[in-house]
Amino acid sequence: MKLSYSAQREAKNIILSLKGDLIGDEAGPKLVEIISDAIQEKVENCIIDLKEVRYISSSGIGVLITMLTKMRNVGGEVYLASPSEHVKKLLVITKLNNIFTVFDSMEAARSAIK
């Protein structure tokens, strides 16, 4: 399933809602570009809503890490929210759950970064 996404700005945060499979194809560079633009606009945090993501490939993981690196380089942070059970397992297997702060819901993520 092709990845679709939407980005919305909330104060100093950007919320990325992803839907489909994150495999780092043509959507990957666009997501990284959204982060680069957001940094230019002084965005401090990015919350990635993974509720509708079914699958993440190794390239998709690379995209997430690139986004995290870009944000951390300017003192920002990327948070992951609402991962499915399958995506949660992947985060544990790849130890990304130690690199990213993962929230069970968007509400939890939003309240944590206020």
Rank of each mutant, 00 (worst) to 15 (best):
K2I: 06
K2R: 10
L3M: 12
S4K: 12
S4L: 09
S4R: 10
Y5T: 06
Y5P: 09
Y5C: 10
Y5M: 11
S6L: 10
R9K: 15
E10S: 14
E10A: 11
K12F: 12
K12G: 10
N13K: 15
L16G: 09
L18F: 10
L18R: 10
L18A: 09
G20T: 05
G20F: 06
D21W: 02
D21N: 14
D21S: 13
L22K: 07
I23F: 07
I23G: 05
G24R: 01
G24V: 02
G24D: 05
D25H: 10
E26P: 02
E26M: 10
E26K: 13
G28S: 08
G28L: 07
P29R: 09
P29G: 08
P29I: 03
K30F: 02
V32L: 12
V32C: 11
V32H: 04
V32R: 12
E33T: 10
S36I: 03
S36H: 08
S36N: 11
I39R: 06
I39V: 15
E41M: 11
E41W: 05
E41A: 11
K42C: 05
V43L: 04
C46V: 14
C46Y: 03
C46P: 05
C46I: 10
I48L: 03
D49R: 01
D49F: 00
D49W: 01
D49E: 07
D49P: 03
L50R: 01
L50I: 06
E52I: 05
V53R: 00
V53G: 00
R54L: 07
Y55M: 00
Y55W: 01
Y55K: 00
S57K: 04
S58Y: 03
S59E: 08
S59F: 11
I61W: 03
V63S: 02
V63L: 03
V63I: 14
L64E: 00
I65D: 02
T69H: 10
K70I: 07
M71V: 02
M71C: 02
R72L: 06
R72G: 07
R72W: 06
N73F: 09
N73E: 15
V74I: 11
G75L: 13
G75H: 12
G75D: 13
G75Q: 12
V78Y: 00
V78C: 05
V78E: 01
L80P: 12
L80C: 10
L80F: 07
S82I: 05
S82D: 14
P83G: 09
P83E: 13
P83S: 14
S84A: 13
E85K: 15
E85V: 11
E85M: 14
H86V: 08
H86I: 08
V87P: 00
K88Y: 12
K88G: 07
K89W: 09
K89P: 05
L90E: 01
L90M: 12
L91I: 04
L91M: 12
V92I: 15
I93C: 11
I93N: 09
T94V: 13
T94F: 13
K95G: 09
K95D: 14
L96H: 00
N97M: 01
N98A: 14
I99L: 15
F100M: 04
F100G: 01
T101M: 10
V102A: 02
V102T: 08
F103L: 04
F103M: 03
F103P: 00
D104W: 02
D104H: 07
D104I: 06
S105C: 08
S105W: 06
S105Y: 05
S105V: 06
A108Q: 12
A109N: 10
R110T: 10
S111R: 04
S111A: 08
I113M: 04
I113Q: 06
K114T: 11
